[in-house]
Amino acid sequence: MKIRKLNTKDIETVVELWYETSIIAHDFIQADYWEKNKEAMASIYLPNSETYLAIEDEKIAGFVAMAENFLAAIFVNNQIQGKGIGRKLLNFVKDTRTMIQLKVYKKNMKTVDFYRSQGFEVISENKEEKTGEYEFLMEWREE
């Protein structure tokens, strides 16, 4: 697996990966919420983030998007989760920072557990206005 920076031509594929993964990982939120956010993801979030792709067999296997020290997104193709791709992407951005914060839905326990296993700690819990769901603010600091 190699990691490279996002190119404009990758955006459509990355948005589809984000959408397909989001509706499964966040099955407690209506799928149309994610559908409505596809355009913003393509035109605002990805172009304005520091985004890296995990490439495996010449295909995009996952991506990580950073906004300074905030991990805005990390997603791995549903078919190949559990093979260390997310961990490699996370370690890639950890190597360039001393602190990272992120938000994750409280009900998304699989992902909460993943972040805890990677050294993140819950520092607060808040209700997200758009979805009405509770989310954790988590933080990792270099030791």
Rank of each mutant, 00 (worst) to 15 (best):
M1Y: 11
R4V: 04
K5D: 09
L6E: 01
L6S: 00
N7M: 07
T8N: 12
T8E: 15
D10P: 02
I11M: 01
V15L: 00
V15H: 00
Y19M: 00
T21V: 10
S22C: 08
I23L: 09
I23C: 10
I23H: 11
I23P: 08
I24C: 10
A25V: 13
A31V: 12
D32Y: 15
E35L: 14
E35H: 14
A40Y: 13
M41I: 02
A42P: 00
Y45A: 01
Y45N: 03
L46E: 03
L46N: 04
L46D: 07
N48E: 14
S49G: 05
T51N: 00
T51K: 00
L53Q: 07
E56K: 08
D57G: 05
A61S: 14
A61L: 04
V64S: 08
V64I: 14
A65P: 04
M66T: 01
N69T: 14
N69E: 15
F70M: 09
L71W: 06
A72G: 13
A72S: 15
A72Q: 09
I74C: 06
F75H: 05
N77P: 02
N77D: 15
N78A: 15
I80G: 10
K83N: 14
G84R: 08
I85D: 02
G86E: 12
K88Q: 12
K88M: 15
L90T: 07
L90R: 03
T96W: 13
R97V: 03
T98V: 10
M99K: 12
K103W: 11
V104R: 00
K106I: 06
K106G: 10
K107S: 14
K107A: 14
N108L: 00
N108F: 03
V112E: 11
V112A: 08
D113W: 01
R116I: 11
Q118G: 05
G119A: 04
F120N: 02
E121F: 06
V122W: 11
I123R: 05
S124T: 09
S124F: 03
T131G: 07
T131W: 08
E133V: 01
E133I: 04
E135I: 05
L137W: 08
M138G: 02
E139K: 07
R141L: 01
R141V: 06
E142N: 13
